[in-house]
Nucleic acid binder design. Structure first.
Lengths: 118, 118
DNA sequence: ACTAGTGGTAACTAAAAGTATACTGGTTGC
DNA sequence: GCAACCAGTATACTTTTAGTTACCACTAGT
């Protein structure tokens, strides 16, 4: 008799059909989990910020990193890029409504990190 | 006159002194953001699971990956490892209260991912 | 003319993350 | 005896990520 109700030392036996929820978590992490992505989003929450200003806000991030992450975030619809001046080139990055919808998660993460001294 | 109240095309000028909150987010991400870490945590929420069972749950993850992530999570106090049988070696991984405190964030992430078809 | 700032890009290197395969030493079942 | 499962470990390898440095074209200020 090889049913799956067998328990062994309090450990549940599950027959490997529970990969729907975890994938959702992994997928979400792929969007928010890049090295500076969450931070960038967080910094845009109070309004648009320009490229070099953002670089400075992130402290240790190189231009290349900021550029790459911004492009990813833009491609995924979390931020927008707008050229606000041509001749002295000026670009503003802003958060979209979709991006804003993730701020709730980030706030929880921030609180959790803070509460547990991580 | 070079105060920071100057606005240029609606873009706020902030003078680079806002790196307390983002660092919290980055730090939190470093704990929960590893490739399989969040998923592992998620799979342990219904009770202890054994090593190979966990590997299977994660689908594509190699033993090495699962092993590494579990060690990290254990070192950070999110999961515990318990040898439940010696002779036919059996090990059970369980989530700690601390680990459980992060599930709230993961649930939000899951919902967000789901709601936005990510 | 020279310096500094804007928003990037290109080339390159170093380090981290992940994958694949095989192996150990023990046990259980046929 | 032989295969298969347990919980990993070891080795080698590829891929991805991160970061440095230098550079571009342009402008503003001195």
């Amino acid at each position: 008799m090889k049913t799956t109700t067998k328990t062994e030392g309090n450990v549940k036996k599950i027959n490997s059909e529970s990969c729907e929820q975890p994938c959702l978590i992994e997928r979400g992490m792929r969007v928010l989990g890049g090295k500076w992505k969450a931070s960038i989003l967080w910094h845009l929450k109070d309004g648009p910020v320009r490229f070099n200003e953002l670089s400075r806000m992130l402290g240790g991030a190189s231009k290349k990193m900021v550029d790459q992450r911004l492009k990813e975030l833009e491609a995924q619809g979390l931020v927008t890029r707008e050229v606000i001046s041509d001749r002295p080139i000026a670009v503003a990055y802003d958060i979209t409504d979709f991006g804003r919808s993730a701020l709730d998660i980030l706030e929880r993460l921030k609180d959790w990190t803070e509460d547990n001294n991580i």
